[in-house]
């Protein structure tokens, strides 16, 4: 058994600007020291559209992703530009099952400011990176963190998300390190 670097697969779903996928991938490589492959895009998830809510069911998209081949990737992260929801919430920025294999990041609500104006491109990319790293944290079995200065702290709205730093607190870093080591050995 030899340990090797864990590979993450990044899947654009529907139409997503290339720079968004590249930026998210770069952040995962930079912050988590993992290899990331940007995979061919999947079709627009019209199957998950809810006509009453005019939104897309995150659970249904995750389910569809689970059925995709993983090609040696430990985790898959889907990036898309639709308004996501889970049944109890009005919206979500991203979604992942605790300890699961697939996560989603939606840039749909990250493009605006709270006053409705367009957010600068750099801020949009930073927000997408934060959501992606947060959801990846869940895939590596990290829980929400009480520390407001941690990526795993729950952000319910854009104001909270913008306040969240782009790093994990020292406890979450340790747990994440443990999870990554374990995964590398298993692989």
């Amino acid at each position: 058994m030899t340990s090797k670097k864990t590979r993450i697969g990044l899947v654009p779903i529907g139409e997503v600007p290339q720079i968004t996928s590249k930026s998210v991938a770069a952040h995962i490589i930079g912050y988590l020291d993992l290899d990331v492959d940007i995979l061919p895009a999947l079709d627009h998830p019209s199957y998950a559209h809810n006509r009453k809510r005019l939104q897309y069911d995150a659970g249904a998209i995750l389910k569809a992703m689970e059925s995709e081949p993983f090609h040696g990737h430990a985790k898959l992260i889907g990036v898309l530009d639709v308004d996501l929801y889970v049944p109890i919430f009005t919206h979500v920025f991203g979604e992942a099952k605790q300890g699961g294999r697939c996560a989603l990041v939606s840039v749909h609500r990250l493009k605006k400011n709270t006053d409705g104006s367009s957010a600068p491109r750099s801020l949009q990319l930073e927000r997408a990176a934060k959501v992606a790293l947060h959801e990846l944290g869940h895939l590596f079995d990290l829980h929400h963190c009480m520390d407001a200065k941690c990526l795993m702290h729950f952000s319910g709205d854009l104001v909270d998300l913008d306040k969240t730093p782009l790093y994990f607190c020292r406890y979450c870093s340790v747990f994440l390190g443990d999870a990554l080591k374990k995964l590398a050995i298993v692989d």
Partner: peptide, 10 residues
């Protein structure tokens, strides 16, 4: 009230 904003649950 369902659905609620994530921050409401928080």
């Amino acid at each position: 009230l369902k659905p609620f904003k994530p921050e409401q649950l928080s």
